[in-house]
């Protein structure tokens, strides 16, 4: 084996490792909810091939408002569901839709699209 072969092979395995990490192991960065007057925590979430941010940190016991805006024509993200809070909303393209809930118990809650493809996490502390 030449040096080139070794470098290319190592690079190839690097790519494989990257694929595994990128698609299967990646965990998004968390964004903390910001407070506004009246004690409501607010986070703006963009829906575009997934949720940005996909991981949200919020405080328990304070009302939380998630402003979802779907910024893509694809119908995948058309619905957003917070199963644990019994909330579901239809997201028209480019129109912010607010979902409000009161997370009482600390823990991790999922929010997903209508078909469970896009996934987001709500971490309540």
């Amino acid at each position: 084996m030449t040096t080139t072969n070794i470098i290319v092979t190592l690079f190839g395995f690097g790519v494989i490792g990257w694929i595994v990490w990128y698609f299967w192991l990646w965990q998004g960065e968390s964004v903390a909810a910001a407070g506004v007057a009246g004690g409501v925590q607010v986070v703006d979430v963009t829906v575009r091939g997934g949720y940005q941010p996909a991981s949200i940190v919020a405080e328990a016991g304070r009302p939380l408002r998630l402003n979802f805006t779907r910024r893509e024509a694809s119908l995948c993200g058309e619905e957003v569901v917070l199963p644990d809070f019994g909330r579901r909303a239809h997201l028209p393209e480019n129109q912010p839709v607010s979902l409000e809930s009161l997370p009482r118990e600390p823990g991790e809650y999922e929010f997903t699209c209508g078909m469970n493809m896009y996934k987001g996490k709500l971490i309540v502390r």
């Binding site: 190839g12 790519v15 595994v20 299967w24 569901v81 019994g86 579901r88 699209c113 078909m115 493809m117």
Partner: peptide, 29 residues
Amino acid sequence: AQSSKPPIGRLVDKVSSYFVPTVMIVAVL
């Protein structure tokens, strides 16, 4: 009740979330 219905992932979408990266890995190999 409508809003608390758990979403159902479609079988083929579940499959493709494994399939695509796997194919990419096979292609690199």
